[in-house]
């Protein structure tokens, strides 16, 4: 089984075939070195489960999320309409993405502009793969490890999904401890609303450091995340607290993927 394989939508189309699902990689997942690892982990899991998936490759472009949150509705809608043209051109029905920002935008803001798809966050999709028995995971190296999960705002509060990532973590037989503020009350990592791309305003602390401190209060060995931006922010927070040696930051899909490593 070639685990690192991914076919593009164009390849499917020229073979006259249709994939089960489109994996929307997103800009971070395509270009950010840390997020690219998550992309590959997720791809390996998809292949393991025998999912017929496609990516758009060079036909994908930014969903427009950061532009929209920054207030640039023009740029957002231009991006959205271009993407919708591509997606509708391939008659895409189902989309999965490892980025909660892409997830939110595709799911909630595209339909009104003509892009109507079933959109899933990768933790939701992986959960159905587990439930359907297509993917089997054993705790392995994470058995008994202390893990805390940081809720991404755009998966949690924005879309009311708190359980899917936790359901995956519970498969690892690890020891999950919740932060004081979690789920509905989860503190932002500080990256949303286009903050990722600018310096923060004047204050007495950076949001990511505050959130990392909350995570560290649970005395974790691993901080699990579900968003490329949270991943960057919490990793930076861990560096600021000089805890790189003892605390690791992983996307939930990476943890699942790692259980297969010998």
């Amino acid at each position: 089984m070639e685990l690192n394989n991914a076919k593009t939508m164009a390849e499917y189309a020229s073979a006259g075939e249709k994939p089960e699902v489109l994996f929307w990689v997103g800009c971070a997942g395509s270009f950010d070195d840390r997020a690219k690892k998550v992309t590959r982990s997720f791809v390996r899991l998809l292949n393991r489960a025998g999912v017929q998936f496609a990516v758009l490759g060079t036909e994908e472009s930014c969903t427009g999320d950061p532009a929209k949150r920054a207030g640039n509705e023009f740029l957002f809608q231009m991006q959205a309409m271009m993407n919708i043209e591509v997606l509708n051109g391939y008659d895409v029905q189902k989309v999965v993405t490892a980025c909660p920002h892409c997830f939110n935008t595709l799911k909630n803001e595209y339909p009104q502009l003509g892009g109507k798809y079933t959109v899933l966050h990768h933790t939701q999709f992986l959960r159905t793969l587990l439930n359907d028995g297509r993917l089997k995971v054993e705790g392995g190296e994470y058995k008994g490890k202390r893990i805390t999960f940081h809720d991404p705002c755009y998966l949690g509060r924005a879309n009311d999904e708190y359980e899917a990532p936790r359901a995956l973590l519970s498969e690892l037989e690890s020891n999950i401890s919740e932060m004081k503020s979690c789920k509905e009350k989860g503190l932002c990592c500080g990256a949303g609303g286009a903050q990722m791309f600018k310096e923060p305003e004047k204050g007495n602390k950076d949001v990511n450091v505050e959130r990392t401190e909350q995570a560290l209060e649970t005395n974790p060995e691993i901080i699990a995340v579900g968003c490329p931006f949270c991943n960057t922010m919490i990793t930076d927070g861990i560096k600021a607290k000089e805890k790189e040696a003892s605390v690791k930051v992983y996307d939930v899909s990476e943890l699942l993927d790692n259980t297969f490593k010998q």
């Binding site: 949150r69 705002c153 949303g192 609303g193 903050q195």
Partner: peptide, 10 residues
């Protein structure tokens, strides 16, 4: 300064 996190709305 807003991160559009929706904590206030919640």
């Amino acid at each position: 300064a807003c991160t559009t996190c929706n904590a206030c709305v919640q």
